[in-house]
Computed example of a mutant assay.
Amino acid sequence: MIHRIDVRVVAPVRDTEVTDRVADAVRNLFPNAEIDEEPGRLVAEAHSMEGFSERLHEQEILDTARTEFFRRADDDGFAFALKKQAAFEGVINFAVGNPDELGDIEVQVTVHEPDVEAFVDHVAPPTEEGRPVERDDG
């Protein structure tokens, strides 16, 4: 199955923070992202969520991820926010509610192929009793 996606990651950089450290936080979760520095923030582009998906499986938070992805999904893609502090540690922690003082990492995923639901199923498969459910393709 071909996946064509664009991932845009925006991470605020506060005056008290080291830009490289924020870049590391983004790379921890999106290892193949190309990161550009802009005033007060980093903007990263990626075309894969494989590393992110592996982390979701390791942390066993597929159901949480699916909920977050579909909460802000439309026909073109989905968006979610991540806690920056957790990302420094290489941990996925979805930001829900008020951003903390460091600001949250905002992720916007545009899905060109196949479609949003199929891509979410790929990144964070549906689970039964906490285990990913494999879908038969035929």
Rank of each mutant, 00 (worst) to 15 (best):
E60C: 09
E60R: 15
Q85I: 09
V43R: 06
D121H: 15
H112L: 09
D76L: 10
T127F: 06
A95L: 11
R71E: 14
V26E: 06
E129P: 00
F80K: 05
D76T: 14
P12V: 00
A11E: 01
V10P: 04
G90V: 05
E34D: 12
T67S: 11
G77F: 02
A79W: 00
V43G: 04
L82N: 05
K83N: 11
R21V: 13
V18E: 15
R55L: 15
D15F: 08
E54P: 01
E60Y: 00
T16D: 12
V9Y: 01
L42N: 04
V111R: 01
L29E: 00
G77M: 05
L42M: 10
Q108F: 05
V18T: 14
V120K: 06
V123R: 06
V120L: 12
V111M: 04
L102P: 01
T127S: 11
P39G: 07
F80N: 01
D20P: 00
V18N: 15
T67Q: 12
A95E: 14
Q85W: 01
A87V: 02
D76I: 06
F119Y: 15
E68I: 14
F88D: 03
V13Y: 01
E60A: 15
P132F: 03
A25Y: 02
D121C: 09
G90T: 02
V111G: 03
T64N: 13
E134D: 09
V18Q: 13
A95P: 10
D6L: 09
V13W: 01
E89V: 07
G40A: 10
E101C: 10
V9I: 15
D74R: 12
E113H: 09
V111Q: 02
N28M: 03
S53P: 11
D6Y: 05
N32D: 15
F88L: 08
I2L: 11
I105G: 03
R135T: 13
K83S: 07
P114S: 07
Q59H: 08
D136Q: 12
V10H: 00
E128A: 10
M1A: 11
A33I: 08
F78R: 01
H57A: 15
E38W: 03
I5W: 00
E129H: 09
A65D: 10
E129T: 07
G138N: 11
D74T: 08
H122W: 09
H112R: 11
E58I: 08
L82I: 08
E45P: 01
A73I: 06
E58N: 06
R71M: 11
D121Q: 14
V18L: 14
V7G: 02
L56Q: 09
